[in-house]
Amino acid sequence: MKKRWIYAIAAAAGITLLGGCSDSATPAPAAQSGDTDMHGMDHGSSGAMPEGLKEAADPVYPVGSKVVIRSDHMAGMDGAEGTVTGAYDTTIYSVSYTPTDGGEPVSDHEWVIEEELRSQTESVPDAGDTVTIEAGHMPGMKGAEATVDTAEKGVIYMVDYTPTDGGQPVTNHMWVTESELSTE
């Protein structure tokens, strides 16, 4: 009877550990240039778009365009084929912040857009400004105070893609810049 009890506990512990290591809805993140720690990154969208976002008037890659991603924000992203699901005119930022959950500081996180930031002033944030992040791309990001590293007006894209590393397809990945996309 003791052996059965021990086997039952071991099996339950194994299932718990395995369940905690997998998340089929979120592709595995990858550490890469830019962010110091991409652990837990989830740029997929549940459909909730930032308020005030304006569709791009004349994007290089219109919605429905087939593209190749030339960025490594996440594992299996660089070289992945995808489809543009959104193109928006906005100000695009890279930011540095300390996560609200006690995680390690993140440097030069790419990308957050104007509609995902709350500025300390009435003006559009610029490099060096302090802002509050309203996006939840990574654990501890939402509500974190950040410093703007770069700011550039342009078109930001949302894409669906299938990772090159065999990971689960990603829907509505937020965000990719025009320079991170190509047609071949």
Rank of each mutant, 00 (worst) to 15 (best):
4 R>F: 10
8 A>Y: 08
9 I>Y: 14
9 I>T: 15
9 I>R: 09
10 A>N: 11
10 A>H: 10
11 A>Y: 04
13 A>M: 12
13 A>W: 08
15 I>V: 12
19 G>S: 06
23 D>I: 13
25 A>D: 08
28 A>Y: 05
30 A>G: 06
31 A>C: 06
32 Q>S: 14
33 S>M: 05
36 T>F: 05
36 T>A: 13
38 M>L: 06
39 H>G: 09
39 H>P: 02
40 G>N: 01
47 G>Q: 02
47 G>P: 00
48 A>W: 06
50 P>R: 06
53 L>N: 02
53 L>G: 01
54 K>G: 00
56 A>T: 11
56 A>V: 03
57 A>S: 15
59 P>H: 00
59 P>C: 01
64 G>S: 06
67 V>P: 02
67 V>C: 07
69 I>T: 03
70 R>W: 11
76 G>E: 02
76 G>P: 03
76 G>Q: 03
80 A>I: 07
81 E>L: 04
83 T>V: 14
84 V>Q: 05
84 V>C: 02
85 T>F: 06
86 G>K: 06
87 A>H: 02
88 Y>R: 02
88 Y>Q: 07
89 D>K: 03
90 T>Y: 05
91 T>L: 09
92 I>R: 08
92 I>L: 10
97 Y>N: 07
99 P>Y: 13
105 P>D: 10
105 P>L: 09
106 V>T: 01
108 D>Q: 03
110 E>Q: 09
110 E>H: 11
112 V>E: 10
112 V>A: 15
114 E>K: 15
117 L>G: 00
119 S>Y: 10
120 Q>H: 10
121 T>N: 15
121 T>D: 15
122 E>Q: 06
125 P>Y: 03
126 D>V: 10
127 A>M: 08
128 G>Q: 11
130 T>R: 10
142 K>F: 14
144 A>E: 00
147 T>F: 11
148 V>K: 04
151 A>P: 05
152 E>I: 11
154 G>K: 13
155 V>L: 09
157 Y>D: 06
162 T>H: 02
165 D>Y: 11
165 D>T: 09
170 V>L: 05
172 N>A: 14
172 N>G: 12
174 M>S: 03
175 W>N: 06
176 V>C: 14
177 T>D: 12
177 T>W: 04
180 E>N: 13
